[in-house]
């Protein structure tokens, strides 16, 4: 499995990470190594097997449509680095 520099940069972008030049090399190496190992899944005898979604077989776990009083706003905002008028402040978003 070969991972190109373009590929690792594309992936980093999707994950919203900046990689320094020296990190790119390291991560490329690690990713290649791990992917080569992970390839063994292709040798597994899985023909005809369903994909597992989670591990337990539970289904239809629903909630009643009943209001529970909302949370105290100050507590919800207490960890924000910047807030204004009860909202989270971020740099201007241009559409």
């Amino acid at each position: 499995m070969q991972v190109s520099k373009e590929e690792i940069l594309h992936i980093a972008k999707l994950a919203d990470l900046n990689l320094k030049e020296e990190e790119i090399e390291t991560y490329m190496g690690h990713l290649e190594e791990i992917l080569n190992f992970a390839k063994v899944v292709n040798k597994a005898p899985i023909d005809g097997l369903e994909e597992s979604i989670g591990v337990n077989e539970a289904y239809n776990i629903f909630r009643k449509d009943e209001i529970i009083e909302s949370f105290n706003r100050d507590e919800l905002l207490q960890n924000a680095k910047e807030q204004q008028q009860g909202m989270f402040k971020i740099p201007k978003v241009i559409n």
Partner: peptide, 30 residues
């Protein structure tokens, strides 16, 4: 953490999902 985010993003990204994630879910059944 970054290493795993990169690996995880890679295996879910278009073109690789079937080869890794989907297979892995089948192996899980196995």
């Amino acid at each position: 953490v970054k290493r795993r985010i990169i690996l995880g993003t890679y295996v879910l990204s278009s073109g690789y999902y079937d080869a890794y994630y989907k297979k892995a879910q089948q192996v899980r059944t196995l």
